[in-house]
Amino acid sequence: MKLRTRLTLWYGGAFFAAGAVLVAVVYLIVRDRVTANMPVSGDSVESLVQARAQLGMTDEQLTALIDTVIQRQQAANDATLQAVLFGSIVALVVVGLLAVVFGSLMAGRVLRPIDAITATARRVADRSLHERIDLDGPNDELKRLADTFDGMLARLDRAFEGQRRFVANASHELKTPLAINRTLLEVAAAEPDAGHRVRDLAANLLAVNERHERLIDGLLTLAGSEQAPVDPVRVDLADIAAHVAAQFADEASEAEVAVEVANAPGVVVGDAALLERLVANLVANGIRHNHPGGTLAITTGTVERRGRIAVSNTGPVVAAYEVDALFQPFRRGEGRDRVESVRGIGLGLSIVDSIARVHHGALTAVPNRDGGLTITVEFP
Rank of each mutant, 00 (worst) to 15 (best):
A207L: 12
Q247R: 11
P229T: 05
I216S: 08
V235L: 05
V230Q: 06
V233N: 13
G224E: 07
A242D: 05
V244Y: 00
P229D: 05
G218I: 06
L222I: 08
A241W: 02
L206R: 13
V208F: 14
A242C: 09
D231P: 09
D239H: 05
E226A: 11
L215W: 13
A245Q: 02
P232T: 09
L206G: 01
V230L: 12
D231N: 15
A238L: 08
A238S: 15
H243W: 01
G218F: 04
L237T: 02
H212T: 14
V235Y: 08
L222Y: 06
G224K: 08
S225W: 00
D239V: 11
A242L: 09
L206F: 04
A241I: 14
D231S: 15
H212Y: 15
F248H: 12
A246Q: 08
Q227F: 11
H243I: 05
A223L: 03
D217I: 06
R211M: 14
L237A: 02
S225Q: 01
L237E: 01
A241M: 11
A228Y: 04
V230F: 02
A242F: 01
L219Q: 10
A249M: 03
A223M: 03
A241S: 11
L220Y: 04
L215D: 07
R211K: 14
Q227P: 04
D236C: 00
E213S: 15
A207T: 15
H243A: 12
D239C: 05
L220W: 00
D236S: 01
D217Q: 04
A241P: 09
A245L: 04
P232W: 08
T221K: 09
G224Y: 02
F248V: 09
L219T: 07
Q247M: 11
I216P: 01
Q227W: 10
H212E: 13
P229L: 09
R214F: 10
Q247I: 06
E210S: 10
L219N: 04
